[in-house]
Computed example of a mutant assay.
Amino acid sequence: MEGFQQQFIISVFIILLGYFFKRTKILKESDGQTIARIVFNITLPALVLVTFNQMEITLPLVSLIVIAILFGLVAAAAGFFVFRSADTDLKGMAIMMMPGVNVGLFAFPLVEAIWGREGIQYFGMFDVGNAVIVFGLCFFIASYFANGSSKFYLRETVSPLLRSIPFLTYMFVVALNIFDFHLPTFLLDTAEIISGANMPLSLLLLGLYLNFSFEKSWFPLIGKYLAVKYGTGLVLGLSLFWLFSDYPMLANTVLIGFILPTSTTAVVYAIRYRYNAKIAGTIVNITIILSFLLIWVLASFVAYH
C-alpha cells in the first residue's frame, strides 16, 4: 500500500511539473501537440508491444471489448435523456462527450504504476472497445446534431481507426498471440527501452494541458454533465465490480475504466462541428482532475480489499 501511495504522489508531482513548465514558459501548451504525437505514435505502441507479447487471450480480456462498447452506449443514452430538452448545440456537444474516455494518455501511466503489465493488458483490451465508441459513436452523435441529419458515413468512421497507430498495434499484437507468433528479442528489447518514456511523457502532457480559467455561466451545463458522467460511471462500475469479484483484474478495470476522463477527441469534434470548443476543453480539464482524485480513492479501496 505504501508503494501504491508513493506512485500516486510521484504522478501528481510530474503533472504539476508539466503545469509549472507551462506557467514559467519553459514549455508552451502548443508543445503538447508534439509530445502527444510522440506518446500516441511511439511510446504507447512500444508499451503495447512489450506488454501484449505472449499474452494469453482469455474470456475476461476479450469481454472487456464488449463491456467498453456497451458502457459507451449506456452513457450516451443517459446523456440523451438528461439533455433532451437543451438547445441543439449544447445537447449535441454534451451527448457527444458522454461515451468516450481517455485510456491511452491518462489511464496507462497510472495503471502501470498500480498493477504493472497485467493492468496494461486489461486496460488495453478495454481501450479497443473504447476506440470503437470514440471514433464511431461519438463521431456519429457530433455530426448528427450538428447537421441535423441521420446519415451515417461508414468511411468517415472507420478511417480514424485505421489511422490510429495504438489501435492498429492492439490488433497486431492480438493477432500475433492468436497465431502464436513471437516478435524478435531485439525488437522487444528496443520497444522496452522506448516504452519507459511513456509514463513520464504522458503525465507531463497532462500538466501542460491543465487550464483553470472558465466562465461562471458555464457552471450549470458543466455541473449537470459531471453529475451524469460520474453518476453513471460509479453506479455501473461499482455494480460490475461486485459482480466480477471472482475476476479481480477484470473488476478493477471496469471500476476504474468507467470513471476515466472525457476523451480529448471530443475537443477535436467540437472544433470540427462548431460546438463551443472552450466549454469542451474546460470539461476535459475538469474531468482529468476529478478522475485522478476518484481513481486514487477507489484504487485505495481496492488495495485494502
Rank of each mutant, 00 (worst) to 15 (best):
L221W: 10
M93D: 01
P160S: 14
V39H: 00
V173D: 09
D127K: 08
P220R: 07
V50P: 00
E2W: 04
I286C: 04
W218I: 12
T262H: 07
L44S: 09
M55I: 13
F172K: 08
L61C: 08
V74T: 05
G3Y: 07
E118T: 12
S239P: 00
I69Q: 04
P45K: 06
P200T: 14
F244R: 03
L238R: 07
M93T: 02
V111W: 02
W242N: 15
S11F: 01
D246H: 10
G196L: 11
V48N: 06
S143C: 12
Y230A: 03
L61R: 04
G148Q: 13
G100L: 13
L154M: 08
P99L: 07
Y19H: 14
P184N: 10
L47G: 13
F21S: 13
K224Y: 10
V268L: 07
P45S: 05
E112D: 09
V48R: 10
A146P: 00
I114C: 06
F52E: 02
A197G: 11
I9S: 12
V235M: 07
A68D: 00
V284S: 04
Q7D: 02
L243H: 12
F40C: 09
K91Q: 05
G257A: 01
A227M: 06
N41K: 10
M93H: 05
F135P: 01
R117V: 15
F301K: 09
L47Y: 13
F52S: 00
L187N: 14
I35P: 08
S195N: 06
G104Y: 09
G136R: 05
F301S: 07
I165C: 10
L73A: 03
D246G: 08
M249Y: 05
V297F: 07
G104H: 03
F8N: 13
F13I: 15
T282H: 04
F214T: 11
E215V: 02
I193P: 05
E192V: 15
F80A: 11
K28W: 10
G237K: 00
K25Y: 05
T24M: 11
V228C: 05
Q33K: 15
N285F: 07
K22I: 13
A270C: 03
Q5M: 14
S164Q: 03
Y209L: 11
G72Q: 00
A131R: 14
A191N: 09
F71M: 13
I279E: 02
E56I: 13
S263T: 10
I295Q: 12
A75H: 06
A303L: 05
K216Y: 03
V12M: 09
L260V: 02
E56S: 11
E2G: 14
M125D: 12
L238C: 14
I178L: 11
I14S: 00
S213C: 13
G72I: 01
G79Q: 00
I26R: 08
F83Y: 02
A77P: 04
Y170E: 01
Q7P: 01
F140V: 15
G92R: 04
Y122W: 01
P45G: 07
Y269E: 04
T58D: 03
Q54R: 14
L161C: 14
F212P: 11
P220N: 10
R37W: 02
